[in-house]
Every structure is written in structure tokens, then in C-alpha cells.
Design a protein around this nucleic acid. Structure first.
Ligand SMILES: [Mn+2]
Length: 320
DNA sequence: CTTTTTAAGACAG
DNA sequence: CCTGTCTTAAAAA
């Protein structure tokens, strides 16, 4: 068994056979991306992380990490996993902005993101490849890290001793492209002492190529209704319809989350990202502001409803 | 029929 | 103590 090749500097790495990796340290400024930075803390508080149940070797266990999933198009992003339908949420302004920054750097567009939360050194992900059909044959997957540093190891399928190790610290960007998901696996191994390894959040941006859901009849360039076979390299549907954003009210009171505590909602977005020279940062702030605006509107709406109810009650009492 | 699925726990060095 | 590797099963596709 050989030790993995350690990659400690930013680099473009050719893994051969059409597989390559881009490693860019500190793509996001560490003071924002680290455990006590504004971005990490905002991700921590705004993200609807869930710990999923899993059956492994006839035992029901909890997945040793928490996950969330966003997509620009909810229908397009939905997929089935372990017999359960996974339905994404909408991007938040912060994550949307991070996506835009990564897109600019990588020169590719993404329309979905898996968010992983490793609480401490005992949270892990085992050897796997992101080879879901959904993302196509040669997906470009961009991983952006926040919080505690964790090791990330790549190993070649046909020679498990061929390994690369990256230590993904706060703000580091790692992009896998080409045939990496066909020819390599990756893992985030456990680390000790578990309790003293801080929390890490990882955003993995992707592009959906083969949605499970049938494209809505509207204006998808005609595609034969039944074609279970692969379509050899369709021209990539230029993604990211901004119309969805405009028309999708992100704060509609959902069935699962009644309007109960508007103050809490306000508190959650009260993080102020102040005085940053960089453009992406300013955009975050603008979006946070507009988010605040929308939430304030929602708050007013909720208050109006409350007052109406109180008014009704008073009228009823009056009648009695 | 075959392949895939995935983490926990034991163990060695 | 730390960490990489091996073994473990039943169900679904
Ligand atoms: Mn992965």
C-alpha cells in the first residue's frame, strides 16, 4: 500500500484518461469561510439539513452526516433515491451567489447543489463516485468547503493504491471534471479525536443533464416521449432560466412551516455582511437585503392576518 | 441469474 | 491513540 500523493498547493491536476481536477485554495476568503466566519454561520443557520435513515447490511442506521439539496428548477431537480423521491428546495441568495462565483471561475453553469454537513471528525462519507445518471457521463462537480478542514482522498478504480490526498480547508474549491466519476472514487474519512474536529459544510455544485421527470410539455425541444436509451451527446440545454426566480415566491408559508415565528425568521437573516470590496460579497449583501425586504413584507402580512383574527375575536366577544 | 447498495465495528501496524 | 482495510446481509433492480 502506497501513501497517497499529497496536494498542498493550488493546482490543475491531470489524472490521465480524460480525468482532471482543479484545486484552488482559499477561493473564498478564509475569514468568511471559516467556522466563525459570516458565510459559514449563515449556511449553518439557513440550511435545512437533514440526517437521513439508511438500511445497510440489514441494519437501520443514520447517515453519518447531514444533507440538503437545492435546484433552480424543483421539478427538474427531483430524483428517486433508495425508493424515495428527493425534492430539492430553492437556492438561497447566499448559495446562489456562491454558485455564481464558482461558475465564473470554472466557466461552466450549475443548476443544483448538494450541501453536506459533517458535524465532527466521526461524520464521514465512504468511498463512492457521483455517477448518478442524472448528472450525465462526465459531470463537472465543484466542491466548496467551509468550516473545519477535512481530508478528501481520490483513488483510482483500477488501482486502489493510486491515490491523491487534498486537505480541504475553509474557502477551498475542488473541481472534478471529465471522467473522474467513472475512473475514480472519493471519500472523506473519519478523523480523530472526533470531538475536537470542528464542523464542516461542503457545497457540491452540479448540472442536471438527464432529469428523471419528463420535461414539461411547454417548450422543451421535442423529445420522443419514450426513449429509455441514452441520447448520445445532446447539445447541453443552456440552463438557468431566470424566469423561475422572478415567479417563484420563496417565502410562501408552506404546509410544513406555518407562519408561527416571523421574528425568528427575521433573526435568521439579520446577519449583515458589511463592507466588502469584492463584487460577489456586495451581491450577497444586496440579496440579503432584498431577502430582508421580502421577509419584512411577509411579516407585515402575517401581522395583518393576526390583527384581522383579533378583530374577529373582539367582534365575536362583542356580540356575546 | 447478476449486480448494486452502503456504514459500523473489528483489527493490525 | 490514530488510521486504513476488511468483513458483515438482505433487498431491490
Ligand atoms: Mn461525492
Amino acid at each position: 500500500m502506497c501513501k497517497p500523493k499529497e496536494v498542498s498547493q493550488s493546482a490543475d491536476i491531470n489524472l490521465g484518461n480524460g480525468s482532471s481536477v482543479i484545486y484552488k485554495k482559499k477561493f473564498i476568503q478564509p475569514h468568511l469561510a471559516s467556522e466563525n466566519g459570516d458565510i459559514f454561520r449563515q449556511l449553518m443557520s439557513e440550511t435545512p439539513f437533514e440526517q437521513k435513515d439508511l438500511v445497510v447490511f440489514a441494519k437501520k442506521v443514520k447517515q453519518p452526516r447531514l444533507v440538503a439539496y437545492y435546484a433552480t428548477d424543483i421539478e427538474r431537480g427531483s430524483f428517486t433515491y433508495s425508493g424515495l423521491r428527493n425534492i430539492p428546495s430553492h437556492f438561497t441568495p447566499l448559495v446562489e451567489q456562491l454558485k455564481n462565483s464558482v461558475q465564473e471561475y470554472v466557466k461552466e453553469e450549475f443548476d443544483s447543489v448538494l450541501l453536506n454537513y459533517y458535524r465532527d471528525g466521526s461524520d464521514t462519507v465512504g468511498w463512492h463516485a457521483d455517477n448518478e445518471k442524472l448528472y450525465g457521463d462526465e459531470p463537472t462537480i465543484a466542491s466548496l468547503s467551509f468550516g473545519a478542514a477535512r481530508d478528501f482522498i481520490l483513488r483510482k478504480n483500477d488501482n486502489n493504491n493510486d491515490k491523491y490526498k487534498f486537505t480541504l480547508g475553509p474557502g477551498d474549491l475542488l473541481v472534478m471534471k471529465g471522467k473522474v466519476q467513472q475512473q475514480w472514487q472519493h471519500t472523506v474519512p473519519r478523523r480523530s479525536p472526533a470531538q475536537s474536529i470542528g464542523p464542516r459544510i461542503n457545497l457540491t455544485f452540479r448540472r442536471i443533464v438527464h432529469p428523471e421527470s419528463q420535461p414539461m410539455s411547454s417548450k422543451q425541444p421535442r423529445q420522443s416521449p419514450q426513449q429509455p436509451r441514452e441520447l448520445p451527446r445532446q447539445p447541453p440545454p443552456q440552463a438557468a432560466s431566470p424566469t423561475a426566480q422572478a415567479s417563484a415566491p420563496p417565502f410562501l408559508p408552506s404546509a410544513t412551516e406555518p407562519v408561527s415565528s416571523p421574528t425568528e425568521n427575521l433573526a435568521r437573516t439579520s446577519v449583515q455582511l458589511l463592507l466588502d470590496p469584492h463584487e460577489w460579497r456586495q451581491k450577497i449583501e444586496q440579496q440579503e437585503q432584498s431577502m430582508l425586504g421580502e421577509q419584512a413584507a411577509l411579516l407585515r402580512q402575517a401581522e395583518a392576518v393576526q390583527q384581522a383574527e383579533q378583530h374577529d375575536q373582539q367582534q365575536q366577544q362583542h356580540q356575546h
